[in-house]
Simulated assay, not measured.
Amino acid sequence: MSEQEDNLDLERADAFSIPVAPAGYKSGFIGIIGRPNVGKSTLMNQLVGQKVAIVSPVAQTTRNRLRGILTTPEAQLIFVDTPGIHKPHHQLGKVLVKNAQIAIQSVDVLLFVVDGSVEAGGGDRYIVDLLTHSQMPLVLGLNKIDQQSSNYHQIEDTYANLAGPHNWPIVKFSALNGDGLEALQKFLIDRLEPGPYYYPPDLVTDQPERFIMAELIREQILLLTREEIPHSVAVTIEKVEETPTITRVFAAINVERDSQKGIVIGKGGIMLKTIGSAAREQMQKLIDGKVYLELFVRVEPKWRQSRSRLAEFGYRVEE
């Protein structure tokens, strides 16, 4: 590289507040993959030290490839939280699984997260088959060790049988309480190559604020309605007005049927008010200031089957 190109890189780094990494510094992208509901989003939030991904007991919470950024004195780790890999039943599901598979091919290290409180199942073996020909470094992460029962040796043996033929190292941890995450972090850093800062060191996600706001609303819908409104909801931020004293957010909750609209609104509007109040609290933590949140609900029939609606709501196959 010429001196002129070196100077250009320095200018570009300075323009985006990205410092030049010291000699020997490591960095890279780490794909977090696994079945739905094994704790991938909880894990990423714990690793970056801040809530950047929504968490729900409902499977398939994550829809977009969400990046969480952890910068340490030794390395910058960019975690890519992918949708759970599963058999899709609609166009949205196909997009989610396709994006997860793309992520497998476009990162530097893979972290395959499994539920260490139960034995390995068919879903785990399906993912192993997908990874059989992958040449990139992989770590098998046994999550939920805080929930293990007395037969944990038998459970762990089933995962050792999956990892053994591929010589994948196994790291045990609890994303919920943080046990074992320091060892996991070291394992991942050891597998990264020397590289630059990709993002400013104080950044924890590359997603725009509006995206996080919409996700915080969707999280409360999943938590409060559970199985009644499983995955037929999409949230769009229609408008954000900022003043020195308050941020006003106007958001639409899109559902597929009139009956779902009634559930989201609730008797006398109580459910919508509860969703809004809980989401507003989370938003105020996000922006560190007062938030006024106005929600309205609209019916968009079969939006999960429509390519145009999926794209409009931000769900598209990533390159």
Rank of each mutant, 00 (worst) to 15 (best):
Q105W: 06
V255Y: 00
N167M: 10
Y197G: 02
V291H: 05
I145E: 05
H89C: 06
R191P: 03
E219P: 02
L131D: 01
S306G: 10
N64S: 12
R191V: 08
I275V: 13
E182P: 02
M213W: 02
F211G: 10
T72I: 05
T236C: 02
S277Q: 14
P301D: 08
V118T: 14
R218G: 00
L224E: 09
Q147R: 15
Y159F: 15
E318F: 03
T274S: 13
L110A: 05
I170A: 09
D146C: 10
S56F: 07
I287V: 14
E215M: 06
Q101T: 07
E219D: 09
E11K: 13
T61S: 07
A234M: 07
K285M: 10
A15R: 11
M44N: 03
D179H: 14
D258R: 10
D288W: 03
E256D: 11
V139I: 15
D190A: 15
D6Q: 14
Q101P: 00
I32N: 00
N45T: 06
E119Y: 09
M271T: 06
G178V: 12
P201V: 04
R65T: 11
G178S: 12
D9V: 07
I189Q: 09
K267G: 07
V291F: 04
V109T: 07
I145D: 06
S27H: 02
G180W: 04
S27E: 04
K51Y: 06
N151W: 10
T247C: 08
Q305P: 04
L295G: 00
D258A: 13
L184R: 04
I155K: 03
A175E: 05
R307N: 14
V114F: 12
L10M: 13
G39K: 01
A15K: 10
G49S: 11
